[in-house]
Amino acid sequence: MHATHVPLVTPFTPEGEVDVASLERLAKHVLDGGASGLVALGTTGEPATLSPDELETVLRVARNVCDAYGAPLTVGAGTMGTDATIAQARERASYADRLLVVAPYYLRPTEEGVVRHFAAVASAVDVPVLIYNIPYRTGRALSAETILRILDLDGVVGMKHCPGGIDADTLVLLAEAGEKVLCGDDAYAYPMLALGAGGVIAATANLVPSAYANLDLAMHDRLVPLVDALFSEPSPTVLKACLAARGIIDDPSVRAPFLPPAPETVERALKSAV
């Protein structure tokens, strides 16, 4: 049985505040749908647009729901600099069962620099660390050899892997550390599970949690059009519109620089939802 973790969107009210009631309802929806745990302040949650008070509100709500369900909470953290990442990780660790720490982005350090970055972060906190490897956002591709070195560090227990496909390095990672790899590319969830991944962190599961909790080849085939529609515009714009249309959250608002999705994209996604 694979693990399914859901990176929650952050619902907003029409006035632009964090919608606590909708966030709590969404968190319960995905856990009732069979998800193994929640992810707060992942990319899908628009954390870069949240104030410090709003960040704490999201963490508090997610922690309370996870405690009520006996489910683990993974908390996103990480920025460009190592010292800043450590400070952020320490601030959020008290809410987290695990920290999902993104590879340092934009600066494009050497691979050795990335290894030392994760070593410093993992040694600075008391909760386990997951690597968040997403090179098409960070600008820093990592070889399988480097990732395996990071996975061997004390305090690092796994990774969210989002290479944008199944490349040669991904095959090496799955062969060497399969159970530690969580697929973060929704379109490739089933193929990566079939190749040995231990689970998924799937944004699409906000909308259809049971589909990812019970993922097989037939379900994968049914999910392909939905995933295509949800990610055809910047995430989580289409996803939030679909969640609002289904009544799972109250309002589809996103924060600048995001724009509302095209109505036809939302309609296509809703028609594809399983």
Rank of each mutant, 00 (worst) to 15 (best):
V39D: 11
V39Q: 14
V39A: 00
V39G: 06
A40V: 08
A40H: 03
T44C: 09
E46Y: 04
E46H: 12
E46G: 06
P47K: 09
P47W: 13
P47F: 13
A48Q: 03
A48Y: 08
A48I: 12
S51Q: 05
S51I: 06
E54W: 15
L55G: 03
E56A: 11
E56Q: 12
T57Y: 09
V58P: 03
V58I: 07
L59H: 02
L59M: 14
R60W: 06
R60A: 04
A62M: 09
A62N: 01
A62K: 05
R63Y: 11
V65L: 07
V65N: 05
V65H: 10
V65K: 11
D67G: 11
D67Y: 13
A68M: 11
Y69R: 10
Y69Q: 03
G70Q: 02
A71H: 13
A71G: 00
P72E: 04
L73T: 03
L73D: 04
V75I: 12
G76D: 14
A77F: 10
G78N: 12
T79H: 12
G81L: 14
G81D: 15
T82K: 06
D83W: 12
A84W: 15
A84Y: 15
A84I: 07
A84G: 04
A84R: 13
T85M: 09
I86L: 13
I86P: 13
A87V: 11
A87Q: 14
Q88T: 07
Q88G: 07
Q88R: 12
Q88F: 10
A89Y: 01
R90Q: 15
R90G: 02
R90P: 06
E91Y: 02
R92N: 10
R92H: 14
R92W: 10
A93Q: 14
S94W: 07
Y95F: 15
Y95A: 14
A96I: 14
D97L: 13
D97G: 06
D97K: 08
R98N: 01
V101L: 08
V101R: 06
V102Q: 02
A103V: 15
P104Y: 02
Y105E: 07
Y106C: 03
Y106K: 01
L107D: 09
L107E: 05
L107Y: 12
P109N: 00
T110Q: 07
E111D: 02
E111M: 08
E111V: 07
E111A: 06
E112P: 01
E112K: 07
G113S: 05
V114C: 07
V114W: 12
V115M: 03
V115Y: 13
R116K: 08
R116C: 04
H117L: 03
V121C: 01
A122L: 03
A122F: 04
S123C: 00
S123A: 14
A124F: 11
V125C: 00
P128L: 02
V129M: 07
I131N: 00
I131T: 10
Y132L: 09
N133D: 15
I134R: 01
I134T: 03
I134E: 04
I134G: 05
P135G: 05
Y136Q: 05
Y136K: 06
